[in-house]
Structure formats: C-alpha cells, structure tokens
C-alpha cells in the first residue's frame, strides 16, 4: 500500500511537471494564437455545415 502511494506520488509529480512543460512549450510556440484564430471564426465543420 505504501509502495502504491509512493508510486502514485511519483506519477503525479511527473505528470504535473510534464503538463506544465507541455503548456509552456505550446504557448511559446504560439499554439494559443492558432486556437484563438480558429475559435473567433464560426467553425462551419463543427456546426455541421462545412
């Protein structure tokens, strides 16, 4: 049980670090701008028209 908890803690730390690294890398690469550019226009495909 103690091992399981320890292992889970390690997984959590790894995933937390990875998620921050992913988000920061994505932001630095300008992905948020790509999301914005897509989301501010009506996505015809998303609503079933395109």
């Amino acid at each position: 049980m103690k091992n399981t908890k320890h292992r889970r803690k390690l997984i959590q730390i790894f995933l937390l670090t990875a998620s921050f690294l992913f988000m920061i890398t994505g932001l630095l690469n300008g992905e948020a701008q790509t999301v914005l550019a897509k989301a501010v226009n009506i996505c015809l495909e998303c609503i079933g028209i395109g």
Partner: peptide, 29 residues
C-alpha cells in the same frame, strides 16, 4: 472559451503544428 477537443484538432490541423502541446498539457493538468 475554446473546447479543448476542438482546440486540439485546430492545432493539429494547422499549417505549423502536427500535435498540440498546449492543449495536451492543459488536459493532462
């Protein structure tokens, strides 16, 4: 705001990127 599933596909389907680090990181978080 943006739907994360839509945003992920928007980034994947853009000219500059093949995979969305930003949205994947957000979803993992």
């Amino acid at each position: 705001g943006s739907c994360p599933i839509g945003a992920m596909q928007a980034v994947e389907g853009s000219t500059e990127y093949g995979f969305s680090m930003y949205v994947t990181g957000f979803l993992v978080f």
